[in-house]
Write a protein that binds this DNA or RNA. Structure first.
Lengths: 168, 168
DNA sequence: TAGCACTGCTTCGAACTCGAAGCAACGGTA
DNA sequence: TACCGTTGCTTCGAGTTCGAAGCAGTGCTA
């Protein structure tokens, strides 16, 4: 570490607060749109979208979970729900019997197609409408660098969790 | 509406994806630090921090909930937990018997003080370390504008919720 | 001052999330 | 081939979140 100031500059604080605020508000607004149009939670949408972007509309559970920064057990739960709704199917991988491959169905693609335009429209009106083209360029560049940094720093931070005192 | 393109430019997509990724990763990392050092969830930290920043270390429940973009019932729950831990106290407002005023205790300030340096250090190493000063300026400016826009757009969007089919 | 819509908080039930533990399959080694 | 640490997923229990409903206090109007 070169230096570790005890505080942040007001600009840094401002950037951080603005970031968290945009994050919260945008998330809520987008969530609402997804719920209203496709009866999807944000997580479910992310999962479907990621599948839609994958080679044969399919991915291994673990890869999918890592992709959306989500717990494996949580993914199992959501995959069940999506499976019940017929938006995805699950099958053991031919390569590795342990793996479950989750695949987007036609119905899944339909829901995705139904939700997408509104999703994009929401992003336009909520986020990009307030920004100039060059702002968006800058944002993409800066956040891209930040994302790369975050991805690289903690490859998979360990350290045991600790909720409350488990016991004396 | 002036125009509603059916898709986003790749720069816009990039900005959006980078944003969500930074948001997720940063959130997880910060959450972990807060948990390890002060045994606080992110929400709890936000609540304490906001109280610490308020006039007499106190705020009305509703204002606090709005401040952190959080449901009222959720706040009631967390306020109970923080109360039990002695980090805050709750009392009816003298002005308005309906209101509950939640106040930071000394113990609450102590926890906040214990957690803060690590929190700032985490922000440094996770986020700001990857960015130049001018990047941070830009980020603050752009996200500030976006936040203002988001705050203004939906004063409090209504529209009834709808989860799954309530019936066959 | 009686009536009444509204506000502020809490309670309640249902849904979602997570980590730990459990179970099966894999892959290396002897 | 038998063993064994590792990997991939699911099950389980506990904790957290939300919206709807309920309840009390407020303030406006007649």
């Amino acid at each position: 570490m070169t230096e570790t100031p005890a505080s942040l500059t007001s600009t840094q604080l401002g950037a951080y607060f603005a970031f968290t605020e945009v994050s919260s508000l945008l998330r809520h607004a987008v969530e609402k749109q997804l719920r209203d149009v496709g009866d999807l939670s944000y997580v479910q949408f992310q999962l479907l979208a990621r599948l839609g972007d994958s080679p044969h509309g399919q991915q291994r559970m673990t890869d999918l979970a890592d992709g959306v920064v989500y717990s494996r057990s949580g993914l199992t739960y959501q995959a069940q729900l999506l499976d019940q709704r017929g938006l995805v199917t699950r099958a053991p991988s031919p390569d590795d019997e342990r793996s479950t491959v989750i695949s987007l169905t036609e119905a899944g693609r339909d829901v995705l197609a139904a939700v997408f335009p509104g999703h994009i429209e929401a992003l336009h009106s909520l986020l990009f409408a307030a920004l100039s083209d060059s702002d968006i360029d800058e944002l993409a560049r800066i956040l891209g660098a930040a994302a790369a940094h975050l991805r690289a720093i903690p490859p998979r931070s360990a350290a045991p969790r600790r909720r409350s005192r488990p016991e004396a």
